[in-house]
């Protein structure tokens, strides 16, 4: 069942000069409980599409929107974005501009207070959300003093505590080191597995997201130009290059070998590559 339906969505920002069209007739369906990757170059409109998923567009951004977005059956145009916060959570690239409370637990409490929940319920949800992202040991700490990966996990806990059905992550790890990236991906993947939270991962780097997602879309200049399984999409070197996406390095290797020795390798993980190449090296007659 589709939890996100985007139908003929177009959006143009209003500026002093002329309207700037950023999204052009987008159609998407994302199923409940799946992980979906939205990839594309900088400036393609990925962040704008994210804002349309939780109603910030059209409510808080100057511009013209056509088409519609349904999240869990709710038309985003009919609902104020603050009210959508319990349906769609959104995590931005820069953790510093989304954390503003003096302690981690108050950070998580903020959204719950806004939702008007009972105090006991708030306490329980804070405990739970911080446990899920493994930040319960830091509940009294100031978010400003945490590492990048920890900050993003707190930001995830803040959204998570509102029990949203969809979590949109807009380049959540681009400024994190490898350990921090792994922390964040591990936390969101666990959420999807254990709580069937639908994930929308947005970015330019397919190294991680390819391994986690069932479907992937390439957004270029406001249009979806390809949609399908990562393994299939990423095999198309021309398309990936056009989309400015960093391919998984194993896929890059497959391209290179395919072009040089007419094979048809298609690898996302090292394991796949290792078994194919080992077979080939040990038995020269077998083919990839």
């Amino acid at each position: 069942m589709a939890i996100i339906q985007v139908e003929h969505l177009s959006f143009a920002y209003t500026t002093d000069l002329e309207p700037v069209k950023v999204l052009d007739d987008i159609n998407l369906e994302i199923d409940k409980g799946e992980a979906f990757a939205l990839m594309g170059p900088t400036g393609a409109g990925k962040s704008t599409l994210c804002l349309a998923l939780n109603g910030i567009i059209p409510h808080l951004v100057n511009g013209t929107m056509d088409g519609r977005v349904l999240v869990d059956g709710i038309d985003t145009r009919d609902t104020y974005p603050a009210a959508l916060s319990q349906t769609v959570g959104i995590i931005h690239q820069d953790p510093d501009s989304q954390l503003f409370c003096p302690s981690v637990e108050e950070e998580v409490a903020f959204g719950l207070e806004n939702a008007g929940l009972a105090r006991q319920e708030i306490t329980e949800r804070i405990d739970w959300a911080l446990r899920v992202v493994r930040m319960d040991a830091y509940r009294k700490s100031s978010p400003a003093r945490l590492s990048g990966g920890q900050k993003q996990r707190v930001a995830i806990a803040c959204s998570l505590a509102l029990l949203p059905k969809v979590l949109v992550l807009d380049e959540p790890t681009s400024s994190l080191d490898p350990a921090g990236q792994a922390e964040v991906y591990e936390a969101v993947e666990r959420l999807r597995r254990e709580r069937q939270v639908t994930l929308v991962l947005v970015g330019t780097d397919a190294e991680h997201s390819a391994a986690y997602t069932a479907h992937m879309a390439f957004l270029i200049a406001g249009k979806i130009i390809a949609l399908g399984e990562p393994q299939k999409l990423l095999a198309d070197k021309q398309l990936v290059t056009l989309a400015g996406v960093y391919p998984p390095q194993m896929m890059e290797l497959a391209w290179e070998l395919n072009s040089r020795c007419q094979t048809s390798y298609n690898w996302l993980h090292m394991g796949q590559a290792e078994s194919d190449l080992r077979a080939r090296l040990q038995d020269p007659r077998s083919h990839g």
């Binding site: 804002l51 808080l60 104020y80 974005p81 603050a82 916060s85 503003f100 719950l112």
Partner: peptide, 19 residues
């Protein structure tokens, strides 16, 4: 920041709790 606030339900027409 203003988007982050709204994304976390700030300004919803609901009586806020004080935790």
């Amino acid at each position: 920041l203003s988007r982050a606030l709204v994304s976390r339900g700030f300004g919803a027409p609901i009586q806020r709790t004080i935790w």
